[in-house]
């Protein structure tokens, strides 16, 4: 016989941020309380079963106006894999030009179908040569 436990969440579906209590017995959800609308229950359930997150970071780029290329995940990954994904992205580098949406790494942290993609274009038309950049180099 598994005991009943309570897991607390703050709903992020809207700015109100309802404090949610999810009562469960092992993997089984018994009830969800605290939500002011039905989005709360859905949120708590997702957080309990499979919490997922997405994040953005940068990779070094050569031949561009700035030193970094912003990248993002193409879809959320399980929350506990965030740091592993960061570790893989840290090994990447890029060279201009780069197109928006260009895949920099496939199946990040072993999550099939989730890629690391460039979140901007770095063509010559978007950048003016910066005289300060030349003097730095």
């Amino acid at each position: 016989m598994t005991t009943r436990r309570v897991q607390n969440y703050v709903c992020t579906s809207c700015p109100i941020g309802c404090p949610l209590q999810l009562v469960h017995e092992g993997d089984e959800i018994v009830e969800i309380e605290g939500q002011e609308c039905n989005r709360g229950a859905k949120y708590a359930k997702q957080e309990f079963v499979d919490p997922r997150r997405t994040f953005a970071t940068t990779v070094p780029i050569e031949g561009a106006l700035y030193a970094r290329l912003p990248v993002k995940l193409s879809a959320p990954i399980p929350k506990h894999l965030m740091m592993a994904a960061m570790g893989e992205i840290r090994k990447l580098s890029a060279r201009a030009p780069v197109a928006l949406g260009q895949v920099m790494l496939r199946d990040v942290a072993g999550v099939a179908g989730v890629d690391v993609v460039a979140s901007r274009t770095i063509p010559r038309t978007l950048c003016a040569p910066d005289p300060r950049a030349e003097s730095r180099a």
Partner: peptide
């Protein structure tokens, strides 16, 4: 709220 949860609590 979303940022408090996803940037701090996480």
């Amino acid at each position: 709220t979303r940022n408090v949860v996803q940037c701090l609590s996480d």
